[in-house]
Structure formats: structure tokens, C-alpha cells
Nucleic acid binder design. Structure first.
Lengths: 207, 207
DNA sequence: GTCGTATTTGACAACCCGGTACAGAACCGC
DNA sequence: GCGGTTCTGTACCGGGTTGTCAAATACGAC
């Protein structure tokens, strides 16, 4: 028996995430978050324990959304695994959508991986952020490696290649496109890079 | 006939760069720069026009050092071009040295490309920084593409491959390792990624 | 309807930041 | 030695930032 909170935590965290992505962590003030979310300072502190708490919870929500992508796009039968991998790589360069019904990249500014941006900005001095970011990386990397194994079983990728190494490489390319995008290059260039990476995947030798 | 400045501008810019790399732009205060360089606020403002001016000049100095690497490591005869490319990629994941006699990466924190870090943090709202960062990218990318062409002439890389596309891809991998490094992965992992990328370069078909 | 509880709101104090102004010091040319 | 000019260090100012608090508010249980 008490007053219920009058806001949707997910909506608040999305708005905060957008703010962090566009202005960075240190470039975002509590007032900015307050304005972006409509919540007062007091409510923000009570519900999320301040700026840092908002960041951690926003990253946790991002992790959940991020992990959804590989699950729906990469899992499946061995047949077609290579095509699924191809489709996933092409989409991954455009970022992770804020919600299921929101297009992935409203502006390129906020297209870069949220976790990657935070890890580069403050990960070195914030182990918790670094760990969360690496979790984001690991969950996708594991899924990609599994998809590579599936493609290998289907005879579409050289069975001698190490699937984990390939997954590391492919994900490194994806993260690299975040940086290249920050340089000002357009989506077509990033897509081209992803295509090049895919094209170089080791095919099985035809005897 | 006047008092000469009592500091070495290069040394000051190096110290400022290190500070920016470890704390980010918005995470670094003028007092931090003052402490790191030993200069007073007044001198800093007179010589470099404040925090933003320090950043721009530090990035310009970084650009000069960055451009030196490819020139000394990639240029040369067609014979051995592939080996030079290999050596360059392996070194590039360890970062750009602050000075010629300083080892490249004292700590992994500051190993990520300075330009990439700044572009991701403030490039979206600071066109000048974005342009400078992209210049850093372009100068290396051009050199790598030229080295790829040399390797193609020497018969070490598939002549049908587009050297510019390959250069984009390789440099994207290098930038991606900055992010992966920020996740906490060690130099051995980053080296492994670079090796994987190199191993996947398209070799000429043996008829 | 009334009461208790949790949320909300707005304001507040302490602090930090960037940029400037000013006084003192150091150096070079003469 | 001496003057002029530039550099150096420090104090200062307006503005912005963070974290907290007390009063006002809204809702549900009884």
C-alpha cells in the first residue's frame, strides 16, 4: 500500500542510453539524463542510484537486447548457417536496435556498440563497466563461433579453420566498423567492409 | 628580445596526450593537464589556447608519429611487401609509440589509437576532431593499400582482389583490436586476431 | 473516507570546471 | 647594467555539477 512509480524503467533506461551514446559518459550530466527521461533528480537517485547506476542498468538492458540478435538470427540448422552468418554480419554493422520495433540506427552517431563506447571511454578505470562490456562481446562471439561450427559441419567453411579464432576476427571487424563509422564513413562503406570480411572466410578446398 | 619559453612543447603535448588517452577528453580537466605537464594554467592557455587547443595540437602530433610507421615499415620493393605488411599488422595492434625511443605500449590502457578514442568520444559533436581522426585513418589506409598492390605485383596476393577494400578491412581489424583491448583482452589475443586476419588474405590461385 | 507509505518535486549546499586578469619573474639586446 | 618584452604562477569569477533533503503528492489498503 503505497504510491506506485509513475514511469516505465525500461523507457527511462532507453532514453538514458541514447544520451550516453551521443554524449559519452563524462559528457552527460545528471540534468541531461533528467531532461531526456523526464524524471527529477531525486527520482533518478532513488530508482537507479545516480548516474553510474543508470549506466550499469542501461548496459545490462543493452546486453539483453544484444544477446537477442544472435539467438534469433544465428541459431538454426547447419544448412544455411553460412547465409545466416552473412545476414547477421551485414546487420551488425548497423547497430543494435533500442527496441524490437525501432529501426536499428536512427542516426549513425548512436549506431556504435554502446558497450564498446563505454569500454573505450571509461572501461580502463571502471572494472564493472569493462566486465559488462566484455560480457556483451563474449555472448555474441560465442554465438558466432557456434554458427561457424554449423557452417563447417555443412561443408561451407574450411573444417581446418579454428571457429573461435574466426569468431574473434569477425567480431573484431564489426567493432572496428564502429570506429570507422565514428570517422564519418557512411553505412555503405561499413557494409562493404563487412562484405569483404565475409568474402575472405576460408572455404573448404575443392579437391 | 624577450623571455623564451621554458618548456618543450612536444613534451607537453605528449603528457597531455597520455592524460587524454587514459581519462578521455571530458574526463580530463585543465588542472589534470596542468599537473601532468607541470605547466601553469596561464601558460597552457597562452601556448595552446586552452583544453581544446591542446587536444587538437596533440592529435596533430599523433598524426605525424602515426604516419611515420607505415612510411618506414611498409614502403619498399615489391619483393617482401607481404612480409612487411605482416610485420606492420602485428606491430599496429600494440599501438603507436609516444616517441621513437619509447616502447609502444607502456600500459594497455593507453594503447588504443588516440584518434580513434577521441573520434568515438567526441567526434560526433566535434567535426574538427572527427576530420583529424579520419586523416589518421586515411594516411595509414592509403599506405596499406599501396603495400597490398606491391604484394599483388609480386604475386603474393590474388590480383583480382581490390587493394583498397583489403586495406579498409585490415585497418578495420586493427581498430577493432583497440576495442577488444578495451574489453580487457591481452596482447596475445590481439596478436592472434591480427594473425588470423593476415592468414585470410586472398592468395593467388595456383593453376 | 481515511490513513500510511512510497514517490515525486524542487531547492540547496558544496564542489569542480574552464577561462581570464593581473602581478611578478626571467631573458635578450643594447 | 638596464629596458622592454614575453613567459610564468596564482587568484578570481561565473557557470555548471553532484548528491542530499524535506515537504508535497498520489495511490492503495482497510
Amino acid at each position: 500500500m503505497a504510491r506506485p512509480r509513475s514511469f516505465d524503467p525500461d523507457h527511462v533506461l532507453h532514453a538514458a542510453e541514447r544520451q550516453f551514446r551521443t554524449s559519452g559518459y563524462n559528457g552527460t550530466s545528471v540534468d541531461d539524463i533528467s531532461a531526456a527521461t523526464g524524471l527529477g533528480r531525486g527520482s533518478l537517485y532513488a530508482a537507479f542510484d545516480g548516474k553510474h547506476g543508470v549506466l550499469l542498468q542501461a548496459m545490462a538492458g543493452y546486453f539483453a537486447r544484444l544477446a537477442q540478435g544472435p539467438r534469433t538470427m544465428l541459431d538454426g540448422p547447419d544448412e544455411g548457417a553460412l547465409d545466416r552468418l552473412h545476414a547477421y554480419l551485414l546487420r551488425a554493422v548497423h547497430g543494435v536496435p533500442l527496441a524490437a520495433d525501432v529501426p536499428p540506427a536512427p542516426d549513425r552517431t548512436a549506431a556504435a556498440c554502446f558497450a564498446a563506447k563505454m569500454a573505450l571511454e571509461i572501461g580502463a578505470s571502471d572494472p564493472e563497466v569493462q566486465r559488462l562490456a566484455n560480457d556483451c562481446f563474449s555472448v555474441v562471439r560465442t554465438a558466432v563461433a557456434e554458427c561457424v561450427r554449423a557452417a563447417q559441419r555443412n561443408g561451407d567453411i574450411d573444417p581446418d579453420a579454428d571457429p573461435d579464432d574466426l569468431a574473434y576476427l569477425l567480431l573484431t571487424v564489426i567493432r572496428g566498423t564502429d570506429v570507422v563509422g565514428a570517422y564519418g564513413h557512411g553505412p555503405d562503406r561499413l557494409t562493404s567492409i563487412a562484405e569483404s570480411a565475409f568474402a575472405l572466410l576460408p572455404r573448404p578446398r575443392h579437391p
